[in-house]
């Protein structure tokens, strides 16, 4: 039996009838066509599917779409605004914080959430904040550099968020 689900995704209300078993990640990928949110495991451990749900970083593979009904989701597609990259995206670019790019959307969104709470994180705090995100390419060092670089960018006056 299908249920109607309304989720505001990147500012746009999305309404779809879904089976209750449909995961949020599949709602986003298959029904909204937002394929930037990735699936890398089935045990809630890789973090490639990380999105912001009501402002919090969550793993979209471990939430049923029906649970997110009425919520607001930001996916990687919704992070840049007015054609301008988010400072975290800018920093990942400058610091070579990505290689194959598969984990990157989740990694960036987890970092965005961290910087909301902690605008000047130490390397250790960054590592703790992205503990739920696996990257097999970069060896993480450049990612940590990138988050620190983003923190600096965001501390500058006039920078959004």
């Amino acid at each position: 039996m299908k249920t109607s689900v309304n989720i505001r995704v990147n500012g746009t209300l999305r309404t779809h009838d879904v089976e209750p078993r449909v995961l949020l990640v599949h709602f986003l990928r298959d029904l909204c066509g937002l394929t930037g949110t990735h699936v890398g495991c089935e045990t809630t451990l890789c973090g490639a599917c990380t999105v912001l749900l009501n402002g919090q970083a969550v793993k979209a593979c471990t939430i049923l779409a029906v649970q997110a009904d009425g919520g607001e989701v930001t996916t990687i597609e919704g992070l840049a605004s007015n054609g301008r990259l988010h400072p975290v995206q800018e920093a990942f670019w400058e610091c070579h914080g990505l290689q194959c790019g598969f984990c990157t959307p989740g990694m960036i969104l987890a970092s965005v959430e961290l910087l909301q709470h902690n605008p000047q994180p130490s390397r250790e705090e960054i590592a703790h904040a992205i503990d739920g995100n696996l990257c097999r390419c970069t060896g993480y060092s450049h990612i940590i550099d990138a988050v620190q670089c983003a923190a600096k960018k965001m501390a500058q006056p006039g920078e959004a968020k």
Partner: peptide, 19 residues
């Protein structure tokens, strides 16, 4: 030099097979 690949990968605009 910053990678030319990155903007699409960082914005969820890249195409992997599952996409």
């Amino acid at each position: 030099i910053k990678r030319v690949e990155d903007p699409r990968l960082m914005q969820g605009r890249a195409t992997f097979v599952d996409d």
